[in-house]
Design a protein around this nucleic acid. Structure first.
Lengths: 382, 382
DNA sequence: CTGTTAGCGCGTTCAG
DNA sequence: CTGAACGCGCTAACAG
């Protein structure tokens, strides 16, 4: 007697849902066994050469006709693989210490009071990652970790251990970041998008020492001495590294007396405010370096309000994180920090890792790209 | 005899991988059956009340000690549910007709020659979606559909049928968009982020008729008659709707002779160029409305180069897609189209749908928010 | 309250 | 070359 298995969609009433075709359904249709269908559909057969040549056609046709698509969960279970990578996105718990460290604020991240708002910086990372992973047929899932009542780190660990993905990307590394160790304990392949906190880990990021150094050097070479450098906070590795580069340049070019440095300025329009205030004091800088485009625009506004022209009176320069911001400030001289590219390379590395391929270079450091667009010039003659 | 099942991590050599704990492992450890462990871990037991009170503790402790985390694929398989939603992100095939229609270019989307670059507009959508879905414990996976050699539509259908997600969000609807029908055939719950192409579908978007109307009205009320309106292309529903609103206002205020309208201007800095050219012709507009922030900045640049001041000589106004762009152009009067909010609401709706909850309002239309920041003023007196 | 049994859908042995 | 049987890890029936 026929087994009235579910899924057959026999004519009568029954449930509304089309109950998608299974391997078995198409096997029954064609009159072969499941394994046969599986093999054909997965190409585990010497193409056409086999006696099945006719059967193959019928199987393929039936599969197509029944809109067959393998049940991913079943595949994942049996293959032990999901073809999915996760990007860990951290959410700050309002007014709580950073989850990665002891007692500092987490950077860049979503404020709970601006629901859903993400740091623009994620945009490039997501773009680069999805682009690279797509080439390998890997999907990216966004793991928003944390929130008002969950610890981002345990959330991350859960995800890693649940095998819902077989690779992970972390970014915005802090000095003494706890995440690498945790991930290593789980055994999940992961890649750091950004500078690695230590050797041996797989990471691809910007050479931020070079960023700090070249920024100062570019301005120095234009003749600037009084340079005001706005940097990212030092609890982020990025900030640390840029600081090192700035120090190198400062010492090399003898700017100890004239280089001003601030790494304590918050994200939004604080650069605008602090700069405006600074411009009222004596010995104003002849060049300003801003840590990103938004800060640069804040700086420009402050300069404008103080009646200073860019670049005639004061040169302005910044890091370029997002390419589309070039449209916003087309005349700004920038150091392109190529976030999308580092993300893309991180994605490629991760895909390789997930495939089990060996990865030769474990640490990739991209060089910043200087793009001159006219906002830097020699300082005004006194 | 003991079954030497894998996963036990017996002392000797064996594989490097820690081979994560299974339900069975912790069952063996505690001395109960798998189902018992499953029930306890899933809270399918009257909390503490049972005799198991002691056993429960031991189970929970063992699970914690062994770093147990359920195998998601197995869970998904048996539960028939993934707790995952997908956002369909479309990639254009270079120089090919739009995948959704017959013969038009797809909008907004990644150009293959700028690898990895995503339309900034996705940023808000992802932010809003992840935020809302996170509340329901749902992850978002980004399904980048299409590419040089795959049809986005079949890719989307594959994903929908593969049950790798149990809900989907689509966005940037085109007139005659094929996606809703396809998704309905698969039976996968989905939500449209944006204006619905037809009644009955579940969608949350901006009231773009109001956008068009209010934009013109605002400028009209300031005294403007010569208004230049840049719109989104008409193959997008957004463009259609805004156009309707513009027409309404035009007719209501008698601007048939003086309202200029362009919906044919490409994304990047074309607004800059076309406006610059327009300003050399007679009867220049006294107000310009740009379709988004980037275009607005292009327009501003053109105005500046033509020696026109904003708002004294020409008023400037635009749609605000991304909140962070307020930092970039703080003095721009905008209509906030609340992309992040509509995405968040779309996420909430989808989460409900995925839970099987009934959804009362099928179509939600948000009202645009006028934010005056000084770039609009009465036109100059002749 | 607990253990046993039976699948979920698929890929992959191993006999025929 | 093909089919039958098994197992991936988990949950939900059903007995005890």
């Amino acid at each position: 007697m026929e087994k009235p298995k579910l899924g057959e969609n026999h004519g009568s009433s029954a449930g509304r849902k089309p109950s998608p075709a299974r391997l078995e359904d198409i096997a029954a249709q064609v009159g072969v066994s499941c394994s046969e269908v599986s093999r054909v559909l997965n190409g585990r057969v010497r193409a056409g050469k086999s006696v099945a040549a006719a059967t193959q056609q019928r199987i393929l046709e039936a599969a197509r006709a029944m809109n067959y698509s393998p049940h991913r969960a079943a595949q994942n279970l049996v293959l032990g693989r999901t073809n999915t990578a996760a990007l860990m996105m951290v959410i700050n718990r309002a007014e709580e210490p950073s989850p990665f460290l002891g007692a500092q604020e987490a950077p860049f991240l979503t404020a709970e009071d601006a629901p859903g708002e993400l740091s623009p910086h994620y945009h490039e990372i997501i773009g680069g990652l999805t682009h690279a992973l797509h080439q390998y047929g890997i999907h990216l899932t966004l793991a928003r970790c944390g929130g008002p009542d969950t610890d981002p780190l345990v959330a991350m660990e859960q995800i890693a251990r649940s095998r819902m993905c077989d690779g992970m990307v972390i970014t915005d590394m802090l000095v003494d970041d706890l995440r690498p160790r945790i991930l290593e304990q789980t055994g999940l392949p992961y890649v750091i998008r950004g500078t690695s906190p230590s050797a041996g880990k797989i990471a691809v990021g910007m050479d931020n020492v070079a960023v700090g150094y070249q920024a100062v050097r570019h301005l120095y070479e234009r003749g600037h001495r009084r340079i005001l450098f706005y940097n990212i906070r030092h609890d982020l590795i990025v900030g640390q590294r840029r600081f090192e580069g700035v120090c190198q340049a400062r010492d090399e070019f003898g700017l100890q007396e004239t280089l001003e440095y601030r790494a304590d300025v918050e994200y939004k329009d604080a650069v605008y405010q602090t700069l405006l205030q600074r411009l009222q004091e004596p010995h104003i800088p002849t060049a300003v370096f801003a840590k990103d485009e938004i800060s640069a625009l804040g700086a420009r506004r402050a300069l404008a309000e103080a009646g200073l022209r860019v670049p005639q009176d004061v040169s302005l320069m910044a890091c370029l994180n997002a390419p589309f911001m070039r449209l916003v400030a087309p005349d700004l001289t920038v150091l392109n920090v190529r976030q999308n590219e580092s993300a893309a390379q991180a994605g490629t590395l991760l895909a390789r890792l997930m495939r089990g391929e060996p990865v030769e270079k474990r640490q990739i450091l991209l060089a910043p790209l200087l793009e001159e667009h006219g906002s830097t010039a020699p300082p005004p003659k006194r």
